[in-house]
């Protein structure tokens, strides 16, 4: 599925909920699903700064696409991370670098995008794009 299609899918999923409570319950459900990251990556090196909850993010390049895995100690954050992984994981570095993430706004989670919000959704997105940039540079140099 293309990144746009996945985003459409998420928007449709969230459109069934019309109040914040249900949206958050859905996010929490997503957050409760099994940790996606290998335990050995839950170290300082993989920690993203600027988050009130801790977020570990790992990226690997496989067959031209980037596979992300992540975890957080807060459930809502984990739900948001899972959303991002659904969107970004399995995409090429170029797609990720150019990605438009306006779907966050459309599913009513815009408040998490504000730079002052300490859950660091912005930091996560930035880190994912940085990984993409790094992998792109690396493959260009090979």
């Amino acid at each position: 599925m293309s990144m746009e299609e996945i985003q459409e899918q998420i928007i449709t999923e969230f459109s069934y909920f019309d109040d914040w409570l249900d949206r958050y319950n859905h996010l929490i459900e997503m957050g409760k699903s099994v940790p996606l990251i290998n335990e050995k990556y839950k170290t300082k090196n993989y920690l993203i700064g600027g988050c009130q909850s801790r977020v570990w993010l790992h990226a690997a390049m496989k067959d031209g696409v980037i596979i992300f895995s992540a975890d957080s100690d807060a459930v809502i954050t984990k739900g948001i991370v899972n959303l991002l992984i659904r969107v970004f994981s399995g995409q090429t570095p170029d797609t990720i670098i150019d990605a438009d993430i306006s779907f966050i706004d459309e599913i009513g989670l815009k408040e998490h995008l504000s730079p002052t919000r300490s859950n660091g959704l912005m930091s996560m997105i930035k880190q994912m794009k940085l990984y993409a940039l790094a992998f792109k540079t690396k493959s260009a140099n090979q």
Binding site: S53, V75, T77, N119
Partner: peptide, 13 residues
Amino acid sequence: DIHSFDAGTIIDK
């Protein structure tokens, strides 16, 4: 054992 960030996000609402 709910993370303070999770609790705070809901309480804010």
